[in-house]
């Protein structure tokens, strides 16, 4: 199938209010006919199971290609992110307003670095 003929997929975002406002301002927000949104605002009242559920529902949706998740929220559901190994949807950890991005915490980069074990280099 030609790339141009394909239907565009969405970018989902999980993060604090400002991150969501920014990315929605960037034009990625959508609420479909079933009233399902592609974003989740995480505040102090949002529980970890809620975040986990939203993340799993984004993984299941076939109209989502990339999931952006703020790194400090990603830390809360690290086990779920680590268990996702499929290339699509791609899960990207982004910096938040409060916490800068730390590459050593990133699931994919940790996985990629793991291929160079010390014994291989001997």
């Amino acid at each position: 199938m030609a790339l141009s003929a394909q239907k565009g997929r969405l970018i989902a975002v999980i993060g604090d209010e400002d991150t969501c406002t920014g990315f929605l301002l960037g034009g990625i927000g959508e609420i479909n006919k079933k009233r399902e949104s592609n974003f989740l605002v995480v505040d102090k009242n949002t529980s970890v199971p809620d975040i986990e559920e939203a993340f799993r529902s984004f993984l299941k949706r076939d109209d989502i290609a990339i999931i952006l998740i703020v790194q400090n929220v990603a830390e809360m559901i690290r086990h779920v992110i680590d268990s996702h190994v499929q290339p699509i949807p791609a899960v990207l950890e982004i910096p938040s307003k409060e916490c800068p991005y730390d590459a050593s915490k990133d699931s994919i980069l940790r996985r990629a670095k793991g291929m160079f074990a010390a014994e291989d280099l001997r």
């Binding site: 790339l3 997929r9 970018i11 209010e17 969501c20 990625i28 949104s37 592609n38 290609a65």
Partner: peptide
């Protein structure tokens, strides 16, 4: 400038991604 201003009745993505598997 907060989530209260988001137009949730007519929210359509203007930026999408094409996937070439």
């Amino acid at each position: 400038v907060s989530c209260l201003q988001w137009n949730e009745n007519n929210m359509v993505a203007t930026t999408k991604v094409c996937v070439d598997s």
